[in-house]
Design a protein around this nucleic acid. Structure first.
Length: 1058
RNA sequence: GGGGAUAUAGCUCAGUUGGUUUUAGAGCGUCCGCCUGAUAAGCGGGAGGUCGGUGGUUCGAGUCCACCUAUCCCCA
C-alpha cells in the first residue's frame, strides 16, 4: 500500500535513496536482460578525458546520452551501454608533471619515462573511477564495469591497423614545418592550444635594422621586427608590389620604406628623394644582417613580393626567416629560399652560431642589437606591446621553430571523407556545412607529438635506405622484430617499452627503430567505432553494431576534433559513415553568459551542483534547453525546473493522501470510459497528446519539445484538473469518486513513465509508491514499456472546449480584478457574450465556470447589445488581392462603418458601400466584425469572448462573502495549529454584529467547509485562537479538535456519491 | 581574407509558407492586486520594444532580397 508522502522533498536525499535501490535490486542488469533479444540500437559514447573531476558542463551531454538511451531501452531495444574514457595525451602529462613538480622534459627523462608513463596511467585510472562515480550520481546508466579506455592495447593496435592502411595508400609522410614551440616543454604547441588561453599582452623591444643594398652604395632597406633573434636566420625581405614606397635621405644615407610608415618610423628630419611602387624593389639583393655566421654564409638575400605585407605596423618591408616563422616557411617554399633553423628544442642557439651559440633565443635581443650597432646596421629600437603566444600550461613565451612531424596527406582523402560526411544527419543542420568547410580547408593531418604518454606511432623509417615501414598489428611487430622483443613482451604498446623493439627494414634489411613520437590524441578517440566493436577479432559483432545510430557531443571544437577523426578514420577503414546522426549541443556558461573557467572562479563543479540543486534539476534544465544555444547555468536558473518538479510532487502527494484515506486500490472498481466525467476525459485527452509529443520528440532527438509539453501538462493537471476536481476526492463523510481516482492514477502513473528518461530517479520515487507495490507490476519504472497512445482517449474537441472555458475564466478574473472585487465575494450575475457554438460548449461547463468565478448565475448570449460595440477588422488577406494599392484605403473606410452596417455584415448580409466613387459589395469575407469597447460596466473582451460582471451586492451576497472569508481564516488557523486534514473541530467566535448575522445565515456552509462540529461563542480553552479583520469587521476566532482521528477516514471505497 | 551562425522587452528566447495581432508574444525579474487545507505552487493586471541599421520587392515585411554594422564559432 502507499507510503505517506512528506510535504517537501530533498532531491539529493531522494536521489541517493533511488540509487541505492537500483544497486540493491540490480535494476540496470535486469533491464539489460529483459532487452537482450530486442532490436539493437547502437550508441557510441565520445570518450570523456579522464584527467579531472567533472564540471556541470559535462553533465549536459551525459544527460542527453542517458535520456535517449533510456528512451530506447523503454522501447525494448538492446543497447551496449559502453562508456568511454580518453586517456592519452599531453593534458594528462601536464597534470602529472604538476603533481611531480617537474619543470621540463629533462626532468621526465631523468625520472624515467617508464615511471612517468605509469604515473600517467595511474592518474587516468584514478579519475576514470571518480568520473564513473559522478556519472552514477547523475543517474547515468552505463555498463560501468565495461568502459573502454583509449589507452587499451586494443585501441592502440586498431589505430596501428588504420595507420597501416593509410601507409598502404601512400598517405603517411614526414614533413617539416615551422610550429609554435615551447622551449620549456620541448614540444610544438598546436594552433588549437594557442587559441584557448594561449595569448598574453607582452612588451618586447622591437628593432628597425638597415639591410644595405648590393650595388647601391649608401642605400639600405629599413626592416622592422619584434623578434630580434630571428634576424640571425634572415634570407629575404618582403614588400607588397602595389604599395607605395619612398626613398628618403637622412645625412649621407638613403633608406627605403613604405610611404605610410615613414612618419612613424623615421627619427629626425628626412628628405623624400622619390616615390616608387613596391614592384620596383623586387629582386634587389641586399647583404644580410648576420652574414658572418657560418650557417648564413653564402646565402643570397633578395627582395620578394608578398601580398600580406601591410602598412599597419613596421616599415612595410618584412624580414623573412623561413626557419623561424610559419608564413616565412611557406614563402620560402614558394621562392625556394634557404631555410636556416637556429635553435634546438630547448630554445638554445646551435653551436655554429658563433657568439650566440648555446644562448637562449629569448635572452639574445641585447646581443643582437649590439652586433647590429657594431656593424652600423642598427637604425633604432622601440618598446612594443602586443598579444604574444605563450605556452598554455607554463606561460613560457613561444618561439617558432622548424620541426619534423608526421602527417597524413589529405589531398585526395579529404574528398572521400566529404562524401561520407554527407550521408550523416547533422543536428544542427548547418553542422554539415561546418564539417565540409573544415574538410575543404584543413591542411594535412599532423599526427605526431614529441612527448611520452600516448599512442606509439608504429612508424619505422630506415636511416640507411630511407624506406618507411608502418606496422599494422602486434603480431606483425612480433614477426618483424629482430631485436628487443623480449624487453617489450608483456607490456602495453607504450613508451619506453615498445621503443626497445627494432625491425628489419623491408627494403634493405637494416635494423630500424620506431620514431620516438607519440600520436595525436584524436586518433585515440576516432578509432573507437572499430576498436570497441571488436573490428579486428569479431567482424560479425562489429557488423551488428556499426554504424552507430546516434552520437551526441558538445559542438565546441568537435568539427575539427572528434567528429573529424571519426569520419577520417572510418573513411580509410571502410569508406562508411561511423554514425548516422549527430546531435551537437552548445556550451554551458555562467549566469551572466560568460565562459566558465576554473581560474575565473565562475566554474561550478558537478558534485557541488548535484548536492545543492539535485541531479534531477540539472537533468531537467539540460533537457528543456534548446541544444543549439548556450545555457547560462547557475543556482537561480535551477529554480524554474525545480518548480515543475514540485508541482508534480504536490499532485502526487495529493493523490496519495486521499487514496490512503479512502483506501483506493487502482483497478478495484474500474469505470468505463463513457462513464467518466468530462474533466476526466479531458485530462486523459491531454495525456494522450503528451504521449504523442513525447514519442515524437524522442524519436526526433528533440527532447526539449517533450519537456516543454510536459511542463504545460503538469500545470494543466495540477492547476486545472486537480483543483477543479478536489471535491471529488475530498468528501466529508464518504469516499471519493472512483472515476476521479482511477483517472488521476492513470495520469500520474503514465506521466512518471513518460518522464522516466528525463528524470529517472524522481520518476522512480513516484513509481515505487504508486505502482511498484502492486501485484504483477514491474519493480522499476525503467522496466516498464514506454507509454503508447490510447485511441479511445483522443478528443481534440474536448481539449479545445476546455481551452475556451479556461479562457472565459481568465477573462472574467480580469474583469473582477478591474472591478476590484475579490473572488471570495460572490456575485449575482455574469453575462458572457460569444458566438452560438461557443455558447453550446460553455453551457456544458456552466458549473465549472460559476464555481471558479464565484458567481450565482451565468447568462450566455450571442448579442452584445448594451454591453459592447462592434468593431470592424478589415481582412487584408482578402482585400489585398481584390483592391491592390487601394487595400489600405478600403480598410479605413470599413473601419469607419456604423454599428448598424456592421451588425448586418455580422449577420451574414452583403452590403454595398461606396469606395472611390464605385459601389463595392462587402461581406464578412472582407471585414470581420468583432465586439469590443465596454460601455460603463465591468466588461472585458478578447477576440472571441466578452464578459460582463454585475457588481451590485445584495445583503445575502455580502453575507456569503463574509462566510467565505471566515472559512478562509479558519482554514488558515487549522493549518497553523497543525491539525490533521481530517480532524473534526469546534470553532469559537466573537465578532461584530454584522459578522454574527452573516455567520448565522451561513452556519451550515461554514461547518461543512471547515469540518466543524459546532460553532460556539468564544469561551473557555482553545488550541489556537487569533484576531482577524474580516473585510474590515473585527473578529476573534478559536479552534480545537473534537476528535483526533488519524488519516484513515472510515472504510474502503464506497460507491456512489451525492 | 574565406565559411557558418546570431541580432525581437532588464535577462533568456518564441514568432510556422509575408496577411484574423492595424494593439509583436512567452518565461524569468520587477511593481500592484488576487487565490489557496495538495501547493517551496497558482491567477489577473501594470511598467518595459523605433523587431540591429539602410535600401529594395509587395496592396502589405519581425518574416523575403541586397548592402552595412555588431557579436560569436570555424578556418586562413
Amino acid at each position: 500500500m502507499y507510503r505517506d508522502v512528506p510535504p517537501t522533498f530533498s532531491l539529493p536525499e531522494l536521489e541517493r535513496r533511488i540509487l541505492a535501490f537500483w544497486k540493491e535490486h540490480d535494476t540496470f542488469n535486469k533491464l539489460r536482460r529483459k532487452n537482450e533479444n530486442g532490436p539493437r540500437w547502437s550508441f557510441i559514447d565520445g570518450p570523456i578525458t579522464a584527467n579531472n573531476l567533472m564540471g556541470v558542463h559535462h553533465a549536459w551531454g551525459r544527460t542527453y546520452k542517458d535520456a535517449y538511451q533510456r528512451y530506447h531501452s523503454m522501447l525494448g531495444q538492446h543497447l551496449r551501454y559502453q562508456n568511454g574514457f580518453d586517456c592519452q595525451g599531453l593534458w594528462v602529462e601536464v597534470e602529472v608533471e604538476k603533481e611531480l613538480g617537474f619543470k621540463s622534459k629533462r626532468d621526465i627523462e631523468e625520472y624515467g619515462i617508464d615511471r612517468f608513463v605509469e604515473a600517467c596511467k595511474a592518474r587516468v585510472i584514478k579519475f576514470s573511477k571518480r568520473q564513473a562515480e559522478q556519472s552514477i550520481r547523475l543517474g547515468y546508466w552505463m555498463d560501468w564495469d565495461n568502459s573502454y579506455y583509449t589507452m587499451s592495447d586494443e585501441n592502440n593496435y586498431t589505430i596501428w591497423h588504420f595507420l597501416k592502411k593509410c601507409h598502404d595508400r601512400g598517405f603517411i609522410y614526414a614533413g617539416h614545418d615551422v610550429m609554435p614551440w615551447c622551449p620549456r616543454c620541448g614540444t610544438a604547441i598546436s594552433d588549437q592550444e594557442i587559441v584557448t588561453e594561449g595569448y598574453q599582452e607582452l612588451t618586447h623591444t622591437s628593432v628597425t635594422a638597415k639591410f644595405p643594398l648590393v650595388g647601391r652604395p649608401g642605400e639600405s632597406l629599413l626592416v622592422w621586427t619584434t623578434t630580434p633573434w630571428t634576424l640571425t636566420a634572415n634570407v629575404a625581405a618582403a614588400v607588397h608590389p602595389e604599395l607605395t614606397y619612398l626613398a628618403v635621405k637622412q645625412g649621407d644615407e638613403t633608406f627605403y620604406l613604405a610611404k605610410a610608415c615613414a612618419e612613424r618610423t623615421l627619427k629626425n628630419e628626412y628628405a623624400v628623394l622619390r616615390e616608387l611602387p613596391g614592384s620596383e624593389l623586387l629582386g634587389w639583393a641586399y647583404s644580410g644582417p648576420f652574414d658572418e655566421l657560418p650557417p648564413v654564409a653564402g646565402v643570397e638575400h633578395r627582395v620578394i613580393a608578398w601580398d600580406e605585407v601591410t602598412e599597419e605596423e613596421g616599415t612595410g618591408i618584412v624580414h623573412i626567416a623561413p626557419g623561424c616563422g610559419k608564413e616565412d616557411f611557406a614563402l620560402g617554399k614558394q621562392f625556394s629560399l634557404a631555410v636556416i633553423a637556429p635553435i634546438d628544442e630547448n630554445g638554445l642557439f646551435a653551436e655554429d652560431f658563433g657568439p650566440f651559440a648555446g644562448k637562449h633565443a629569448s635572452h639574445v635581443p641585447e646581443d643582437v642589437f649590439a652586433s647590429l650597432k657594431n656593424k652600423g646596421r642598427l637604425y633604432r629600437t622601440q618598446k612594443y606591446s602586443h598579444r604574444y603566444p605563450v605556452c598554455w600550461r607554463c606561460k613560457t613565451e613561444l618561439l617558432f621553430r622548424l620541426v619534423d612531424e608526421w602527417f597524413i596527406d589529405m589531398s585526395t582523402l579529404r574528398y572521400e571523407i566529404m562524401e561520407v560526411t554527407k550521408r550523416i544527419t547533422w543536428m544542427p543542420s548547418y553542422g554539415l556545412d561546418h564539417e565540409l568547410d573544415w574538410l575543404k580547408n584543413m591542411g594535412d593531418w599532423c599526427i605526431s607529438k614529441k612527448r611520452f604518454w600516448g599512442l606509439a606511432l608504429p612508424i619505422y623509417p630506415c636511416q640507411k635506405c630511407g624506406n618507411v615501414d608502418v606496422i599494422g598489428s602486434e603480431t606483425e611487430l612480433e614477426q618483424r622484430a629482430i631485436e628487443g622483443w623480449e624487453q617489450f613482451a608483456g607490456h602495453s604498446p607504450h613508451r619506453p617499452w615498445v621503443d626497445a623493439v627494432k625491425i628489419g627494414c623491408s627494403k634493405c634489411g637494416s635494423p630500424v627503430s620506431r620514431i620516438k613520437d607519440v600520436g595525436n590524441p584524436w586518433l585515440d578517440a576516432g578509432i573507437v567505432p572499430y576498436s570497441t566493436l571488436n573490428y579486428r577479432h569479431d567482424r560479425e559483432y562489429w557488423n551488428n553494431w556499426f554504424p552507430a545510430e546516434f552520437i551526441t557531443e558538445s559542438l565546441q571544437g568537435q568539427f575539427r576534433n572528434w567528429f573529424y577523426s571519426l569520419l577520417a578514420m572510418s573513411t580509410v577503414m571502410e569508406n562508411r559513415e561511423p554514425f548516422k546522426r549527430v546531435l551537437g549541443h552548445a556550451q554551458v556558461r555562467d549566469l551572466k553568459g560568460e565562459e566558465m573557467h576554473k581560474s575565473k572562479g565562475n566554474a561550478i563543479w558537478f558534485d557541488d551542483a548535484a548536492e545543492k540543486m539535485g541531479a534531477e534539476t540539472m537533468r531537467w534544465l539540460y533537457c528543456r534547453q534548446n541544444p543549439y544555444t548556450n545555457l547560462n547555468f547557475g543556482y537561480e536558473a535551477a529554480e524554474e525546473p525545480l518548480r515543475h518538479l514540485t508541482t508534480l510532487w504536490n499532485t502526487y502527494k495529493f493523490f496519495v493522501t486521499y487514496a490512503k484515506i479512502d483506501g483506493f486500490v487502482p483497478g478495484s472498481s474500474p469505470v468505463p470510459y463513457d462513464r467518466l466525467d468530462r474533466m476526466d476525459r479531458w485530462i486523459l485527452a491531454r495525456l494522450n497528446q503528451l504521449i504523442a509529443d513525447a514519442r515524437r520528440a524522442f524519436d526526433g532527438f528533440s527532447v526539449m519539445n517533450f519537456v516543454h509539453a510536459a511542463e504545460r501538462f503538469i500545470d494543466d493537471l495540477s492547476n486545472w484538473y486537480v483543483r477543479r476536481c478536489r471535491d471529488r476526492f475530498r468528501q466529508a463523510d464518504q469516499a471519493g469518486d472512483p472515476a476521479a481516482y482511477e483517472t488521476l492514477y492513470t495520469v500520474l502513473s503514465t506521466t512518471v513513465r513518460l518522464l522516466a528518461p528525463v528524470i529517472p530517479m524522481f520518476a522512480e520515487e513516484l513509481y515505487q509508491n504508486l505502482v511498484a507495490w502492486r501485484e504483477g507490476e514491474p519493480e522499476s519504472v525503467h522496466l516498464t514499456p514506454y507509454p503508447e497512445e490510447t485511441p479511445e482517449w483522443e478528443d481534440a474537441a474536448l481539449v479545445a472546449d476546455m481551452a475556451l472555458v479556461r479562457n472565459v475564466v481568465e477573462i472574467a478574473l480580469a474583469a473582477r480584478n478591474a472591478a476590484k472585487i475579490k473572488v471570495r465575494q460572490p456575485l449575482a450575475v455574469m453575462t458572457v457574450v460569444t458566438d452560438p457554438s461557443a455558447i453550446k460548449t460553455l453551457e456544458m461547463n456552466r458549473q465549472v465556470i460559476a464555481e471558479e468565478l464565484n458567481v450565482k448565475r451565468i447568462v450566455f448570449t450571442d448579442s452584445a447589445e448594451g454591453l459592447t460595440t462592434r468593431v470592424a477588422k478589415p481582412v487584408f488577406r482578402a482585400l489585398g488581392p481584390r483592391f491592390g494599392k487601394d487595400a489600405n484605403a478600403v480598410g479605413n473606410i470599413l473601419r469607419a462603418l456604423d454599428q448598424d452596417t456592421l451588425a448586418r455584415i455580422a449577420a451574414g448580409e452583403t452590403v454595398t458601400i461606396p469606395v472611390n466613387g464605385k459601389h463595392e459589395q462587402i461581406s464578412s469575407e472582407l471585414v470581420e466584425v468583432v465586439t469590443a469597447s465596454p460601455q460603463g460596466m465591468s466588461v472585458i473582451s478578447d477576440k472571441q469572448v466578452t464578459v460582463a460582471l454585475d457588481t451590485n451586492l445584495s445583503d445575502e451576497l455580502v453575507d456569503e462573502g463574509f462566510a467565505r472569508e471566515i472559512v478562509n481564516k479558519i482554514q488558515n488557523m487549522r493549518k497553523e495549529a497543525d491539525f490533521n486534514v481530517s480532524d473534526r473541530i469546534t470553532v469559537g467566535y466573537s465578532v461584530s454584529p454584522r459578522l454574527a448575522r452573516a455567520i448565522d445565515s451561513c452556519r451550515t456552509y461554514i461547518m461543512k467547509e471547515t469540518l466543524a462540529r459546532e460553532l460556539v461563542p468564544l469561551e473557555g480553552e482553545w488550541e489556537h485562537r487569533s484576531e482577524w479583520s474580516v473585510n474590515g469587521e473585527p473578529a476573534e476566532l478559536g479552534v480545537r479538535r473534537t476528535t483526533q482521528s488519524g488519516l484513515a477516514n472510515g472504510g474502503g471505497m464506497q460507491d456512489g456519491r451525492t
